[in-house]
Each structure stands twice: as C-alpha cells, then as structure tokens.
C-alpha cells in the first residue's frame, strides 16, 4: 500500500510552497492557455512565449491542489529556455510516466484537462526522455500509486501541450 510519503515528496512540497515562474506574460506576444479539472476545480494557466522554436519564457497562474500546482511549477522550470521539440518530448515522457494507471482507468480523452490530449499523435517526430533523465520531475512518479490524483499531475502538461499547439499555429498564420 502506497504511503503519503510516496505522494508528497519533499521536492513536490517545496514547489507547492514556493512555486517557480508564477505570474503572467503580456499577451500578445505571449500565448495564454487554460486547463481545468471540473472534478476538483483545479485550474492551471500557462503563459507561453515561443520564439525561434524555443520556449523563451513561461509563467504559471491558477490555483489548485499541491499536486497540480507543484507539477506546474516543476514543468515550468523544466521547459523554460528549451527548444519546443524538447518540451514536447518532455510532455510525452511525463504523460507516459503517468499513463500506467491512466490508460487502465480509461481516463484519457473524456474532455477534462482542457481537451489538450492527443500529443502522442501530434508528435510522431521527436524522442522521449527516460525517467532517470527527468530530474526533479521524477518526484511526481509516486502519483501513479494514487490514481485519482493522476489528473492533477497531468493537468499542467495537457495545458502546456495545448498552448504549444496554439502558439505554433499562431506563428505559422
């Protein structure tokens, strides 16, 4: 049986208590996307500045539980300054890390988490990142032992994926 220490790792509590990259970016040029979990009311707002194929800046808004908010904070630190392709690889890898239970629960694609799924299909190109190479993000691995909380952890990532798609579509237009 999973214990609380599997879920609330010190890194997670640290990012919850002192969230990184909190705030907003002027839009435009930044892109703003919102993710919402209607079950618990968690909300993540991702402000994304994509320049020259890279995540030039990212700011996080919204409110919610320790898992969704720390996941957003960890995510922002992980993708800031990275090429978009790397950010997408991280999204894929993170969702894969979370998908062990999510797939078996049939939780994908039911309209929650801001309808931002589908990253697997969207990104045939680009690789993935192993858990060992995910750094602090690996701290969220314990969440899969608490199936009802998986959506909390993936909410920011779905929102980021949606933001990247929209930002890139906007750049091309």
């Amino acid at each position: 049986m999973a214990g609380l220490e599997d879920l609330y790792r010190e890194i997670i509590l640290d990012h919850y208590r002192s969230p990184r990259n909190r705030g907003e970016l002027p839009s435009p040029p930044a892109h703003r996307s919102e993710g919402f979990n209607p079950l618990c009311g968690d909300e993540v707002v991702v402000h994304l500045l994509v320049e020259d194929g890279a995540v030039a800046d990212i700011k996080i808004g919204g409110q919610g539980c320790s898992i969704s908010q720390s996941s957003a904070s960890l995510m922002s630190a992980a993708v800031k300054g990275k090429p978009v392709t790397q950010a997408r690889a991280l999204i894929r890898s993170f969702k894969a890390m979370m998908s062990i239970h999510e797939a078996s629960l049939g939780n994908d694609g039911d309209g929650e988490g801001g309808e931002a799924g589908g990253t697997d299909e969207d990104d045939a190109a680009g690789g993935t990142v192993s858990i060992e190479d995910m750094g602090e993000l690996a701290a969220l691995q314990g969440v899969v032992k608490f199936p009802v909380r998986i959506k909390c952890a993936t909410l920011p990532w779905n929102t980021l994926a949606q933001g990247l798609n929209e930002a890139e579509a906007g750049e091309q237009a």
């Binding site: 214990g3 609380l4 879920l7 079950l39 618990c40 009311g41 968690d42 919610g64 539980c65 320790s66 898992i67 608490f146 909380r149 909390c152």
Partner: peptide, 28 residues
C-alpha cells in the same frame, strides 16, 4: 490547504471524508 490534499492526508489516518464541489457548484 486544498481539500483534495486534506482528504488525502485524512485517508492516511483512515478518516474518510469527501473532497470536491459536492455537486453544488453554484453554491461553491
């Protein structure tokens, strides 16, 4: 402290409470 986190810690102590909007979102 978010109610889901409260309920999670309570569960560790065997205390079952409901966390959420209780199907009363306008009241929330």
């Amino acid at each position: 402290v978010h109610p889901h986190d409260v309920a999670q810690v309570l569960d560790e102590a065997g205390v079952c409470v409901r966390a959420g909007h209780h199907c009363a979102k306008p009241l929330m």
